[in-house]
């Protein structure tokens, strides 16, 4: 018979976690229901708010493109990223070099350590 114990290694129970999350969601919903029910939706409600500026007509200009996210992080670490990206040349010869280099290093390691 399978033991469907809910605790993993005495440290983690996803079921208890989910129950607590559901309780919190219930509490949040209760607080939400306590709010003012007379709120009126206007024609502008739900529109993007960009620091009070009028949103652009073209919705594509509101969206942040993939390369813009984390630009600061990658730019600050460009001394790490630039050689890493340049190393991924896409050339099969380079792929083979890495296999040969890794084989050489691993063999030397095995002979020195074992």
């Amino acid at each position: 018979m399978i033991d469907i114990g809910i605790v993993l290694e005495d440290m983690w129970s996803p079921i208890i976690f989910i129950v607590i999350v559901l309780l919190n969601l219930g509490l949040a919903y209760w607080l939400f229901k306590m709010g003012d029910p007379t709120y009126n939706k206007t024609e502008h409600s739900g529109e993007p708010f960009i620091s009070g500026n009028r949103p652009p007509e073209d919705v594509r200009k509101i969206h942040v493109a993939g390369d813009n996210l984390f630009w600061g992080f990658t730019d600050a670490l460009k001394r790490y990223f630039e050689p890493l990206i340049e190393g991924h040349t896409g050339r099969l010869n380079d792929y083979m070099y890495w296999v040969v280099i890794t084989l050489a290093v691993v063999l030397v390691y095995i002979y020195l350590v074992v």
């Binding site: 993993l8 996803p14 079921i15």
Partner: peptide, 11 residues
Amino acid sequence: FTLFPNVVVTE
């Protein structure tokens, strides 16, 4: 797997 990680690990 999410609900019963213990079962996956033991069984």
